[in-house]
Design a protein around this nucleic acid. Structure first.
Lengths: 215, 215, 215, 215
DNA sequence: TATGAATGAGGGTTCATTCAT
DNA sequence: AATGAATGAACCCTCATTCAT
């Protein structure tokens, strides 16, 4: 039950490499948030990460790969949090509501990074763009599932489930994209969620489902 | 009541200047639409406008000013088109529906420019950003009015009118921002509008109003 | 019989552009000669030409285009000088001899540039390389013609004309490539030519032709 | 007559060092041959040699030293192969012919390395260059000897032996330098040798020697 | 008023070289 | 003896901006 020296070394190196990559992506995200995409030069990332420019290219083949990794990190959080948040919930409508709420809270935790997702798209290649679009669809998945559940339970009016789910996703993103507006109105995330639920989610329900939820 | 020579000259010059500025902004918008806002360099704008690079700086102090003017023009179209589109309509709900539809169509006409509004936001100066945000609020105005009208007529459930209007604005923008998604689904603008109306607008109505509209 | 203003302007600009291009290529050649290919950076060319880096890209799309232009200039001289040098000569063997001699003298006038042709090939793209190889074949043309003339006149032993011509070209280049060697031996171009004629050209002749020439 | 422990260690280390150095130079040559001398970076050499980058600097102070060692090895092969190839041959003309033929075949075995000798000349330091030139003269030696032998035997026309030998060397190099040309003509090394012998070697012979050889 | 040649800081990227382990 | 992560100067190229004409 022993590990030989090489394995240890390899493991340590692997961990260090992981760390470096994380460090670089963190620096990139930080820079994007505070300085705005165009200031995110490789030199700036290197400086912010406390490494040399050359090292960036040891861990990422491209500037695009760093951007991609940054966006992936954020979207990954969305993909994971929403299913976890609604795991124990049974009521189909509550599942939709809570999925949306959690999505909004996740967005709130990465507000600048979400904005970045919209902003940085222009620096990406066709493939890179397709990649993050694919990932966005993955974050959409849990929402669609929840909405479909409500639809199957007969709780939804005649609305296209995919579009409705996408609307929820967009309105969650909106909390970040239009934060300047909601902030000016003195709205908190929870208030935002509450109002959007009242405005959009309740509207998609059948009268029966709505009166059940509003009870 | 006479105009002296200098005034005439000044007036002519003013008109010509106006023309030039328009020409430049048009070129910038055209470039954004067809090339995707990356390739919008000063030299490209000059070439597309059929003027010299130097002249750009006679009419605009900055590249930012051209971008700003371009965005202003697009947002201006939104501000103007929506009121015109609902001018003769009496039914409060129809006014909301048609305002949203027209907004979507206007977005469709300037898809890339809308995307640009989101993308370029951080490359703008603080003042430029505030300017655009102010203008966005102006485009929101007509929507808010329409929504308030419906609310006053008792056609709306208990939803916050500003938020609902803002949702409509965002979902109109979404047609541009997520065009890759809707395009992949084979959706046209009109279909998009129709589905969003069914999903979001109808949901905000009272049962009475909804059954009246759906009849 | 007048030239309108625009034409004059255009002509002047054209001339100036020509001048600039020449100036840049000159600087590039000068640099290559004295510093060795790897020191020929765009920055260095710009500095040596007394212009900015950016301007280089107004006249040449690429670094490769500058290199290509430099090599083309040198090879062009070879292509032109040899035919001129043998224009009035009738004797087929004399034509060969004189073509070779002139080629050697041309090489001598551009010694460093010839070396450069061999050296720089590594920086060129596939197309660029093919281009200068094509040009080299053009400089071979006059030699082949002269050799063929001698062959048709029955003055040549049974030697492949193309290969023989190519040998002459290579031995002319050799004056530049191995100048360090011949220089150490105290050889002048004329002596070099004379000895190579004796060694290689005379050897390719029939006995009759040789005794005729040696008379 | 004993060897103490330290001596043994030193000897072993010396042998291992030799091996390492050889391994590195081999890798460098292999890279030059297959990748064309551009991609010969230190990291590439290390990878190809199966050692770390750092180790390169334990055995060579410089990248130049590796290049130099590689070129030295190739030129060394030329120096050794030619004498071996003509060892048992008695006829003076055959010795010249066979020396040239073997030289060409040796060049063929190291085509890219020969090209490199020409290309890299200027990136070498003054001493490095002088070193290589000295080595080239050593490879010339056997050719000169063979040519002198033929001259002493009275088989040569009145041609300068050194120059003639140098021509043979250059024309052997030419097989590498102008391989693109001969390859396009569908020539093999053996055909190249045969034609060059007919064109250049036979031409340097007296009538008597030529008719003897051609018999 | 209008031009466009000219600038040069700054972008992304490579690679010979070093050094802690 | 050996590693390879780390460095950073230098590379090629772009583009917002200026200015002599």
């Amino acid at each position: 039950m022993s590990i030989d020296g090489n394995d240890v070394t390899a493991a340590v190196q692997g961990a260090r490499a992981e760390l470096r990559a994380r460090q670089i992506v963190d620096a990139a995200i930080a820079l994007m948030q505070e300085k705005g995409s165009n200031a995110v030069s490789m030199q700036a990332i290197a400086k912010s990460a406390g490494v040399s420019v050359g090292l960036l290219y040891k861990y990422f083949s491209d500037k695009e790969q760093i951007l991609l990794a940054a966006i992936t990190r954020v979207l990954g959080a969305f993909r994971d949090r929403v299913p976890q948040a609604i795991e124990g919930i049974d009521d189909p409508v509550d599942r939709v509501t809570e999925a949306f709420a959690e999505f909004c809270r996740a967005v709130d935790d990465h507000r600048h990074a979400v904005v970045l997702t919209y902003r940085e798209s222009r620096s990406l290649s066709r493939e890179g763009l397709a990649d993050i679009q694919g990932q966005e669809l993955e974050t959409l998945g849990p929402l669609v599932d929840a909405v479909r559940g409500a639809a199957d339970a007969g709780d939804l009016r005649d609305v296209p489930p995919e579009l409705f789910a996408y609307d929820l996703l967009v309105l969650a993103h909106t909390w970040a994209l239009k934060h300047w507006y909601f902030h000016a109105q003195g709205l908190s995330v929870d208030q935002y969620v509450e109002q959007q639920v009242r405005t959009v989610v309740l509207g998609a329900l059948t009268d029966a489902a709505r009166s059940r939820v509003e009870r």
